[in-house]
Design a protein around this nucleic acid. Structure first.
Lengths: 114, 114
DNA sequence: TGTCTACATATAGACAGCCTACATGTAGAC
DNA sequence: GTCTACATGTAGGCTGTCTATATGTAGACA
C-alpha cells in the first residue's frame, strides 16, 4: 500500500477502531491489520504521534494502565471524537465518490441516461 | 475536500482523464471538476507539476500547440501510462476496500435483519 | 483607451503528515 | 544469555499538495 494514500485518512481509521471499545496503541495497530485483512500495516511511528494529535485536539482521552507488568496507554473516544468520526465517514463517502467517478470508466451510468 | 486526501491519488486522476483523449492542463482541470460533479477543484499549482512529473517518469508525453493565439501543452498517455493506470485502478480498489472495511460499520448488514 | 474576465502555463516556498530508524523497557520461552 | 513478542516514544527525512505569484493572449465592455 502506497504510504501517501493513507494521508488524511489516518484519523478516521483510528477513531473508527476506537468506536466500539477503548484500546491501547499496540492493540490498535493489530486491530487495523485484522480488520483490513492484513492490508493495513501501520508503523508505530505513524500511530503513536497520530493518537497524541487526536488527544491534543480533544477527540481522544488516554489513561495509563499496567497489565502483566507492561505499561499501556489506553485511548478512548470523547463525544467530540464521535462527532468527528461521523464527519470523517461522510467525508470518506464524498471522497471515494468523487475519485471513483473520475477513475471508474463510467459503467455506473445512472438509470436516467442522457 | 481535505487536500491531504488527494495525496497519492493525483496520478491516477490525471492518467484517467487522459485515457480517452489527449488534453492540455487547463482542460484537465475542467474535466476533473466536471467528472466529479464539482467536488474536485484541483489548483494549477498541483496539476502542472504533477503532469511534468508524469512526463518525467514516461507515463505521459506532451506537445505544444497554439490554438486561438494561446499556447497549449497537450499531454497524451503512453503505453507505460496505460499500464500505470491499470495498476492505479487496482490499487484504488485495494485501498478503498481496506479503509472501507475498517470504517464501514458493516454496510454488509442486510436492511431487513435485526 | 483602459479594465476586466477567461484562457493558459509555470515556479517558489510553505506546510503537514506519514515513514524509517532508533531508543527504551518488561515478560516469557528456550 | 538470547530471542521474540509486547509496548511506547521521538527525531528527522521525504514528498506531494497548496498558496501565492508571475507572465501573457483574447475578447467583452464602457
Amino acid at each position: 500500500m502506497n504510504p501517501d494514500a493513507l494521508r488524511g485518512h489516518m484519523d478516521a481509521l483510528l477513531l473508527s477502531v476506537l468506536e466500539r471499545e477503548p484500546l491501547h496503541g499496540y492493540a490498535i495497530i493489530e486491530a487495523l491489520q485484522e480488520r483490513s485483512g492484513g492490508a493495513l500495516n501501520v508503523p508505530t511511528g505513524t500511530v503513536y504521534p497520530a493518537l497524541r494529535r487526536l488527544e491534543r485536539t480533544g477527540h481522544l482521552v488516554s489513561e495509563w494502565a499496567t497489565v502483566g507488568g507492561r505499561r499501556r496507554r489506553t485511548y478512548r473516544l470523547t463525544d467530540s471524537g464521535r462527532k468527528q468520526l461521523e464527519g470523517e465517514r461522510s467525508a470518506w463517502q464524498a471522497f471515494t465518490s468523487a475519485i471513483g467517478s473520475v477513475l471508474g470508466p463510467g459503467e455506473v451510468r445512472p438509470s436516467g441516461s442522457a
